[in-house]
């Protein structure tokens, strides 16, 4: 019976789970700017991180993120409220990233350094953000190792779990993978990162 129980559920991420009011979509479709801003603020980090996990380039990820939100605006009237708004958004982001990959054939990733992160963040954007708002160096290292060491599927799994608080079952549905595969990949990925981060 313990085996049976182990398959059915798992602990969610320690991060806060993203909760979206499905009413935002029809409001956006009707031209409600505030609803769009609300949706953007709730999901931008997830969409960006997910795009980054696929494209492994911050500029490309930023472009993909922006394109994703334009697509959401154009298709908001088609959203069917069935309780999975995050999955709907992430699926659109995935399609956008894959299309971008096909068009660019670009998968190179440059090792991070203090200045390159800041330059990459400011390049091609109109944001004027001070360097110290770019986050902790140790956090950036973990993110860098994740992007460097893990496969595309593993990266997506770890990012979706870490940034959105999605359950493995939901991640499996988005990625068209069995839950057991997602669980296994997740565990191995974290193990790999732990090992890499412990190395001097």
């Amino acid at each position: 019976m313990l085996l049976f129980l182990a398959v059915t559920d798992e602990k969610t991420s320690s991060n806060v789970r993203i909760v979206i009011d499905e009413n935002l979509f029809p409001q956006i479709a009707e031209g409600n700017r505030d609803s769009f801003v609300r949706l953007y603020e709730l999901t931008k980090d997830l969409v960006y991180a997910y795009s980054l996990s696929i494209l492994r380039n911050r500029d490309d990820a930023e472009d993909a993120m922006q394109d994703t939100y334009l697509k959401i605006r154009s298709a908001a009237h088609l959203y069917k409220p069935m309780g999975h708004p995050v999955a709907w958004i992430v699926t659109i982001a995935r399609n956008v990233c894959l299309m971008q990959l096909r068009e660019q054939r670009h998968t190179a990733w440059a090792p991070p350094d203090e200045n390159s992160d800041l330059q990459a963040a400011s390049a091609g954007t109109s944001c004027n953000v001070a360097p110290d708002s770019f986050g902790d160096a140790e956090d950036r290292l973990v993110l860098s190792k994740m992007l460097e060491l893990l496969s595309e599927e593993d990266r997506q799994i770890v990012v979706l779990h870490a940034v959105s608080g999605m359950k493995h079952r939901e991640i499996a549905q988005i990625m068209h993978l069995p839950v057991s595969t997602v669980l296994s990949k997740y565990r191995r990925s974290l193990q790999k990162l732990r090992t890499a981060l412990e190395e001097p």
């Binding site: 991420s13 109109s126 708002s133 902790d136 140790e138 956090d139 950036r140 993110l143 940034v163 981060l197």
Partner: peptide, 20 residues
């Protein structure tokens, strides 16, 4: 590890939604 990844992602600035 997960918290570090989330924090690093959230620290990255993005385009303002008004432009979109």
């Amino acid at each position: 590890i997960e918290i570090a990844i989330a924090r690093a992602v959230r620290a990255i600035p993005h385009q303002a939604p008004d432009q979109l």
